[in-house]
Design a protein around this nucleic acid. Structure first.
Length: 426
RNA sequence: GUGGCUGUAGCUCAGGUAGGUAGAGCACCGCGUUGUGGUCGCGGCGGUCGCGGGUUCAAAUCCCGUCAGCCACCCCA
């Protein structure tokens, strides 16, 4: 009986070369930026106690419907992380760092049991930063600007920054009441779906994309009109900071993020190059109450997460940030059927030269075709005559300098020099 | 989670609406050059038509189920 083939689980994929190298390059670029701004790297576990994420919000799908949670062998309720902010705040509370603000960056996979689509996967990757221990608007500005600069660093231009303030405990209750009253009065005009949402979290109704809701939403009261002096002043300072940096933003008074912990500054990066509904390439905001709700001291915090997979889709749409060049520096051919190729490849690699070589004793024509295909700028040819005389043939695969005999002992030095020259020319 | 579209070689896709025993281009391999690539020519490898079941003498083609991808909603990165 034939065994059936396995395939990756729904919504999960194998990311292979050169896409994997490209993703790595993206993370490297992010790490560079984060380091320049004083962020340390944090690698937290992929699974956490379920309770860590329950604080994210009882009215969010991320927690209530989409979480991969299970019982561990000892009966503990465990969840695969659906997002990283809660994990990082848990780490903050656990280790209680004394130097504040505490600034960290991260990258890694997260899991949400959703129905997959392009740019929406059950296992997906994010890069992000979090800052705990300061509510200085300068921190908000630094965080938002770092996200913006990252998109710029990748070469993306079709990104817009949407900004809002969701207020805090001093003004949110009043706004919620006003919003709820408004929607209740107009609930007859709302879709059924939105009426259900209204019962759970009136704020989230603002996020509905259903056509029939739009008229009601358009006239709904806005958070910005309910901000107290303190929160309004903070928001104002954030805006002034972004303007000072020349980071363009758009006030989006109905921007609501899907996680309940957000307060005050809230933002989203949307790609205008992506035409589907999955155009949010990043988002974040303040969560001044989260540390306390995870058992820590009251500590303000802010951060963002950027979707690696979606950013790469957006880069494709913009034609920027291609996969890195994976061509080796040199291709080693051998027709002597000895160990010469193995030894020479090892020597060159030890000298830091990227080497690909032929296998399986194929004829020279075949080996040359492979050398050509992998786009190696140089080929080292080991034939009977070269081997006997202690030489090797070095062939220029790109230019017109033909090929020359090189003493085997001089190969590393000669090739290194040529590669240096080539890199300088580029 | 709801509704819809799609699923044929490694890749992109024809064939399907009139059921009759699987095709193209690219890629890969080989030869033209028994020690030399990129172009060109010739030849070749490769698919139980996502999977399972049904109708039929006969199913890639019709029907049902299932899995996966995609689109919208939802949600969000």
């Amino acid at each position: 009986m034939a065994t059936s083939k396995f395939q990756a689980l729904r919504g999960m994929r194998d990311i292979m070369s050169p896409d994997a190298e490209r993703q790595r390059a993206l993370v490297d670029a992010f790490a560079d930026l984060a380091r320049l701004s004083g962020y340390g790297h944090i690698m937290s576990p992929i699974v956490e106690d379920l309770g860590v994420f329950l604080r994210v919000g009882e009215s969010t799908d991320v927690v209530t419907k989409e979480m991969y949670d299970f019982e561990d062998k000892d009966g503990t309720r465990i969840a695969m992380r659906p997002e990283l902010t809660a994990s990082v705040v848990r780490a903050f509370v656990q280790h209680n760092p004394t130097t504040l603000p505490w600034k960290v960056w991260y990258e890694g996979p997260q899991f949400r049991h959703e129905r997959p689509q392009a740019g929406r996967y059950r296992q997906f990757s994010q890069v992000g930063i979090e800052v705990l221990g300061s509510d200085d608007p300068a921190v908000d500005v630094e965080v938002i600007a770092l996200g913006w600069r990252f998109y710029q660093a990748l070469g993306m231009t079709e990104v817009s920054l949407l900004l809002n303030s969701l207020g805090d405990d001093s003004c949110r209750p009043q706004y919620f009441e006003a919003l709820e009253t408004y929607f209740r009065d107009r609930s007859g005009d709302l879709s059924e779906k939105s009426q259900e949402t209204l019962a759970k979290n009136p704020l989230r109704v603002l996020d509905s994309k259903r056509g029939e809701d739009q008229a009601v939403i358009a006239e709904a009261p806005l958070m910005v009109d309910y901000l107290t002096d303190d929160t309004a002043e903070h928001f104002c300072a954030v805006r002034a900071g972004l303007e000072a940096l020349g980071v363009p933003y758009e006030i989006s008074p109905r921007l609501v993020r899907g996680l309940d912990y957000y307060t005050r500054t809230t933002f989203e990066f949307a790609s205008t190059a992506l035409e589907n509904a999955q155009n949010a390439v990043g988002g974040g905001g303040r969560y001044d109450g989260l540390a306390e709700s995870l058992g820590g001291k009251p500590t303000p915090g802010i951060g963002f997460a950027l979707g690696v997979d979606r950013i790469l889709l957006a880069c494709d749409a913009e034609g920027v940030f291609p996969a890195p060049d994976l061509a080796p520096d040199v291709f080693v051919l051998d027709v002597t059927n000895t160990e010469a190729a193995t030894v020479i490849a090892d020597e060159l690699r030890s000298a830091g030269i990227a080497v690909e070589r032929a296998y399986d004793g194929r004829n020279m024509r075949s080996q040359m075709k492979v050398a050509n295909r992998v786009e190696a700028p140089w080929a080292v040819i080991i034939g009977e005559t070269e081997l006997a005389e202690g030489n090797v043939t070095l062939r220029d695969m790109r230019g017109d300098s033909g090929q020359t005999l090189v003493r085997r002992d001089d190969l590393v030095a000669t090739l290194s020099a040529k590669l240096t020259a080539l890199r300088q020319a580029n």
